[in-house]
Design a protein around this nucleic acid. Structure first.
Length: 315
DNA sequence: AAGAACTCCTGTTGGC
DNA sequence: TGCCAACAGGAGTTCT
């Protein structure tokens, strides 16, 4: 699309079109780490918003509120990317289902300043936002399904803004522990799967990693969430088991994403996809990966989402 | 108030 | 071969 060098592609860590092509917490973390060295400390010299909305309308005067600002710091919160601007606002970006960023480093000879020109003279399909930075980099947001969105929120209100208010703990922080989960799950009758997907409980867990964590923990996704808490409200053993597994699954994926970025930087085209480590997700009908387990991976639908699990070793 | 259902979107896939 | 339905799913909204 951009004829960009593979070394400059950042995005979700999977090949387009391959299963697992979904931005969950590890992928968002990877995108943040890819954007940071290119954008932090730079000034937005130009912003092009190519349509009035993504999933939601852009904030009013989006282009002019970002243009001229310096990007002080970029970080992840749950599945959101937060770019803190010198204007006192935070540019919040969500990748939705299919959002990705492309970075085109410009040495200056390709682009005419102030103009977004492609060899066809038209805007490539689904390139919805183009950021031009003071170091010459062109950062493009592309999102075919437009489930993503962007917003601008005052930095002083960031933790209380509509995106983050009521949101649960970060799964990689110490705030996520068995006592916390037990307090949230106590007497809850919803499915364990749906409970873990609920961002009000844990912020940033998505379908893939919930499936993988439950598999590793040997817990059935059909259990009730209340199985994580005793009648007294104290954590159960399976809760104590699950918490470190959630962290492990996410940390492994982030490590795989980091190695993917390094592979891009090496421009060798060999990508380390974490999806190769998926043990149940997308493996309907395949033999269970657990040693000596004769089961096969099953797929059911919970809360409108596919759940993959082994009915034999997940109880 | 909790929980479930519905909605948005479009590229890909599978069945006939 | 071509067409159409099903599917992917985060998260906001709307119901029961």
């Amino acid at each position: 699309m951009f004829d960009a060098n593979p070394a400059d592609l950042v995005g979700t860590i999977h090949k387009r079109g391959e299963r697992g092509d979904l931005p969950e917490l590890p992928e968002v973390e990877t995108v943040c780490r890819g954007l940071a060295p290119v954008m932090e400390g730079q000034i937005f010299t130009e912003v092009n918003q190519n349509r009035p909305d993504l999933r939601f309308p852009f904030p009013i005067q989006f282009e002019s509120r970002v243009t001229g600002a310096k990007l002080k710091h970029i970080r992840r919160r749950a599945k959101y990317i937060c770019a803190h601007l010198s204007t006192g606002e935070v540019l919040i970006m969500h990748l939705g289902m299919s959002g990705r960023f492309t970075i085109e480093p410009t040495t200056g000879e390709l682009e005419r300043p102030g103009e977004y020109v492609h060899d066809t003279g038209t805007i490539p399909a689904h390139d919805h936002v183009v950021f031009r930075m003071s170091n010459g980099a062109v950062v493009t947001y592309n999102d075919p399904r437009r489930f993503g969105y962007m917003d601008l929120v005052p930095e002083t209100e960031i933790e209380h803004c509509k995106h983050f208010v009521g949101m649960g703990v970060e799964p990689l922080d110490n705030e996520l522990n068995a006592e916390y989960l037990a307090s949230k799950a106590h007497r809850r009758t919803t499915d364990l799967k749906a409970f873990l997907l609920d961002q009000r409980n844990i912020a940033g867990l998505g379908n893939i990693y919930v499936c993988e964590a439950l598999y590793r923990a040997g817990l059935s996704p059909k259990r009730k969430a209340s199985c994580l808490a005793r009648a007294s409200g104290k954590p159960t053993d399976r809760n104590e088991r699950l918490v470190p597994i959630i962290r492990d699954v996410l940390n492994e994926a982030i490590a795989a994403g980091g190695s993917t970025l390094r592979d891009y930087a090496a421009a060798d085209g060999a990508l380390g996809y974490f999806q190769h480590a998926f043990r149940v997700y997308g493996r309907e009908g395949e033999p269970c990966a657990t040693a000596n387990c004769e089961g096969r991976v099953r797929r059911i639908v919970q809360a409108g989402r596919s759940t993959f699990y082994c009915g034999r070793c997940q109880r």
